[in-house]
Design a protein around this nucleic acid. Structure first.
Lengths: 186, 186
DNA sequence: TTTATCATGTAAGTCGTTACATGATTGA
DNA sequence: TCAATCATGTAACGACTTACATGATAAA
């Protein structure tokens, strides 16, 4: 039911279309939550049936019309309930295929694993750069409008900053780990 | 299809029952992969139909009989194929409800979030201790048989050590992050 | 006596991915 | 002219969880 909460949280700020929700997922919380458009549309549909949101068609001349969803009082209540509830999970159960392969690393051999680690380093360093770039732009052009919507919204919110920090720390830990493994394998 | 690979990888070492596989999941790779018993039984069944494993009933007097699965040549080939393939995912897409709540932290208020962080710290510190304890035992009693099966198997395998190291580094990063957030909120 | 461990399975339901279908506008 | 962005949806499938059903033995 967390997808629901995520959608309600975004709609809590302002009404928007399913497509816009998907964009925000990708821009603002892709490190925390992802969802396919098809899943979002299905969920919005179910939520409307339960009275958590309402929708109406907005006519557009230059683009396809869109269905704009708004949160209802009932939806807002449901969201606040979830938001202030005591969390029961702190360690996300994850399924990491890369690490699973690593677990059987001895069978694959050190060379295969070394290449795997190097590939992984490339990817994670790239992700780290992608995260840092908007921060650097913001630092160079303070108060500028060069930023993406999500980044502007984030600058005003300390919790958003906490999340970015965690993403950064996580990437850096992964990089350090991979480097140390590689050093030990050589 | 990674659950399949995980199971094949365990059976590659020795034949065992579904229940024993579940135990190994929990003991050895719970940081990387988890599966419910029902899922394991279902998967074993499907794998047997595809000829990747075979099974036979082993009679036991003091305990319920068990169905012991063995990997076939076809299964072994399938496993090695997966193991040496080039991984295409390095960053696990995760869905973290705790962090999602955090994203809407401003709406919940600092007090709620502070309590949430403190709770999280308790859990992660406990998980870190649970990970470190067998390591300490191994250090105090070298070559001793006090260890759990999984820990003994792990000591002989450097990749298993890499995985534990990553788990430890991850926990420590989470702890550091939470502490810094708390400091900033006070 | 109750709980934990060992042991296997079925059924229903939820959540998530992938593929398919459609179509307008804008910029390279 | 081709790709990208905007925009909405359906259908099928795959993966995972939860609940249910059963039952033995051993230890606290």
């Amino acid at each position: 039911m967390s997808l629901r909460s995520a959608i309600l949280g975004l709609l809590n700020k302002e009404p928007m279309s399913g497509y816009a929700i998907k964009t925000l997922f990708d821009e603002a919380i892709n490190f925390i939550w992802q969802a396919e458009l098809s899943q979002i549309y299905r969920e919005l549909d179910a939520m409307e049936k339960e009275g958590l949101v309402t929708s109406s068609i907005e006519q557009q001349h230059d683009r396809p019309n869109k269905r704009v969803y708004s949160i209802t009082e009932s939806g807002r209540a449901r969201f606040m309930e979830w938001l202030t509830a005591v969390p029961e999970q702190f360690l996300v159960p994850k399924r990491d295929e890369f690490m699973l392969r690593f677990f059987f690393g001895s069978l694959a051999g050190d060379d295969v694993m070394k290449r795997s680690l190097e590939q992984m380093l490339l990817h994670v360093r790239k992700a780290r750069e992608a995260l840092l770039e908007p921060m650097r732009i913001a630092a160079r052009h303070p108060g500028d409008a060069l930023m993406a919507r999500a980044d502007r919204a984030c600058r005003e919110d300390r919790y958003c900053g906490f999340i970015k920090k965690r993403a950064l720390m996580t990437y850096e830990t992964m990089i350090r780990w991979a480097e140390e493994c590689l050093a030990e394998l050589k």
